[in-house]
């Protein structure tokens, strides 16, 4: 059997965990799930047994405790592989699991061939490059890149079993002690339907006034490239890319952005990309759906004026 850590939000399994359950079936073995704290319905996801971990200390997220539980259950069930979603939590829990068991870990995989030898395909450079690798391990540890593997429903009446982990004080040393809510207001980059984004070509901090004006007219979020945050023109929270935010708008408007792989890694979820750039050879202009060549300082205000005319 293979064991999958299933994360939950608001009482439901998160999509990246359901994607992981789909990929786990490629081992051709029964799939067991570990749920932490409370059960959730997994009957459409090919799960033979859902183990629900309950412990008085599990009210606050504690990554070492999650790793310890996952290991205890993997040993108890003699799991032939252990998987989790390649989310922040999934990756950190699996890294801690790998550390305490001395096993290799393949992070952000997109496919698995059970072998032997087991081979995986995994993301590098935030998805700009793929790696095929052999995972030489008696118990392969794998995280699954989010939003790459489509969820394939598979009906199976999952048995639900309680699981009582043994946790030490050391497992609970690193735990969430406080949650600070984000200040409200503004359009969130991750959820915006339109993102108007500026790069080095905007020229200055003040140059973003025309970007903000267009974003305001479209109800859009303002984004930027890494060059812009490094220059201090915009805060890092506006940065789109591999080390910034990954966006999935209906339309992404890239103004004066060259289109380095660092930036493009944040755009894979964008439905349509409009590139505005004075350099027709810029990678952004080659990798967009629509292009306007020329000076963004003329083009962006002209688009704003045109929107005002038709609104």
């Amino acid at each position: 059997m293979v064991l999958v850590l299933v994360e939950q939000a608001g009482g439901n399994a998160i999509d990246p965990s359901l994607q992981t359950l789909t990929l786990a079936r490629s081992f051709g073995q029964p799939v067991h799930a570990l749920l932490v704290g409370s059960a959730t319905d997994l009957t459409q996801h090919g799960v033979a047994v859902a183990h629900v971990a309950q412990h008085v200390a599990l009210g606050a997220y504690a990554p070492d405790a999650w790793a310890a539980m996952l290991n205890q259950l993997a040993v108890q069930l003699n799991a032939s592989a252990v998987l989790a979603a390649g989310t922040d939590r999934g990756n950190e829990v699996m890294a801690r699991f790998a550390a305490r068991t001395g096993l290799p870990l393949a992070a952000n995989c997109t496919s698995v061939s059970p072998g032997p030898p087991l081979t995986v395909t995994r993301l590098r450079w935030g998805g700009s490059l793929l790696e095929e690798a052999r995972l030489n391990s008696e118990r392969p540890l794998i995280t699954v890149a989010p939003y790459v593997v489509p969820i394939e429903p598979s009906s199976m009446p999952a048995d639900v079993e309680p699981f009582a982990p043994e946790l030490t004080d050391e497992n609970l040393l690193v735990r969430v002690v406080e949650h600070v809510a984000a200040p409200g207001g503004g359009v969130s980059l991750t959820e915006a339907k339109v993102v108007v984004s500026g790069g080095r070509g905007v020229g200055s901090k003040e140059g973003f006034a025309i970007i903000e004006e267009l974003a305001g007219l479209l109800g859009a979020a303002v984004g930027c490239s890494r060059a812009v945050t490094s220059a201090g023109w915009r805060p890092h929270t506006d940065q789109v890319g591999q080390t910034g935010t990954k966006v999935a708008p209906d339309v992404y408007i890239a103004c004066g952005i060259s289109g380095a792989t660092q930036h493009m890694a944040g755009l894979k979820g964008a439905k349509r990309i409009l590139a505005i750039n004075s350099d027709a050879q810029a990678p952004m202009m080659q990798n967009a759906d629509y292009t306007v060549a020329g000076d963004l300082k003329e083009i962006v205000p002209a688009i704003s004026a045109e929107i005002r005319k038709v609104k």
């Binding site: 990309i273 409009l274 590139a275 202009m285 080659q286 990798n287 967009a288 759906d289 629509y290 292009t291 306007v292 060549a293 020329g294 000076d295 003329e298 083009i299 205000p301 002209a302 688009i303 004026a305 045109e306």
Partner: peptide, 13 residues
């Protein structure tokens, strides 16, 4: 992505 040109300069608005 097919990189369809919508024009050049402000005239593309």
């Amino acid at each position: 992505r097919r990189a369809e040109s919508l024009g050049t300069g402000a005239a593309a608005a």
